[in-house]
Amino acid sequence: MATTCWGLPEALCAFPAIDTTTMREMRRTIDTGFRGLVREWSDVIDAATAPLQSFLNVLEHSFVDAPWVVVLLVLLAVVWAASRSWKTVLGAALAMFAIGWVGLWEDTMVTLAMVTVCTVFAVALGLPVGIFAARSDRVQSIVNPVLDVMQTMPSFVYLIPVVVIFGIGKVPGMIAVVIYAVPPMIRLTSLGIRLVDREVTEAADAFGSSARQKLWNVQLPLALPTIMTGVNQTIMMSLAMVVVASMVGVGGLGRNVLQAINNQFFTIGFLNGFALVAIAIIFDRTSQAFGKRLQKHREAGHE
């Protein structure tokens, strides 16, 4: 193919790549080795993911099988409890009615269940790691580059190792989503704790607080606005990744979007996309309002 080489030697013109046979050999060795390894460990992996699998199934069923009125009322109650704003509740109700009306109720429930579980896992994982990173500069210096890599990696790339190791299904999807959604939680927890006023933590020390007392009485409450931003970000990223994870077998709205892309179904794609945006807005408004409500005491004002 190298037609004109501008008079340069061959080696400087076409990139000196490994020849195809060697490459093929190499790929085969690595792939079979890896596949063998995974097969060998498949019992262990299955055993480890089985409880997750059944937990996810139970949750998904309870979301899907429950009468829609009950689910809707519970959802609106949660939105009200967190935001204490009728406007947000009304918005959520309208959005859910619209979703149900166009026949996407079931798929939305699947997605909702998945996002809920992933967010809970990501927060439960990210909070302690963030606290450790805030307490020790060494932990921070290890965690930070790892998070950098995780956040630079395109979301599709996460799916490769997950699929190879865990196969296709809900659990691998969930693992990919949690890994994708956890960095902001870790980062913002650590940042929030590190930004707590030095004088206040010093006061906690001066009154003889133990490390645990200081964490619960001072650091976490004062870092809460930043931590809540982390939770909000984690929810948003879970939702985004749940759609991508439909490629490895996660059901719900994401799968419909994927099918719509593959088949150029404009209306289905549009409606599912709209449903995703609607739940994203509900989650975002609710979690932000909750974070703001926790900070009520910061409002100044003498009488």
Binding site: V200, N217, L224
Partner: peptide, 30 residues
């Protein structure tokens, strides 16, 4: 620190999420 000393700070160092009463009993809580 708990039993023998108490400290007052230049910029007050109160806990913003606690009321006056809860701030005042902070050392006793500890």
């Amino acid at each position: 620190r708990r039993l023998k000393t108490a400290m007052v700070f230049q910029r007050f160092a109160l806990l913003p999420h606690r009321t006056v009463l809860e701030n005042t009993r902070y050392g006793l809580d500890i």
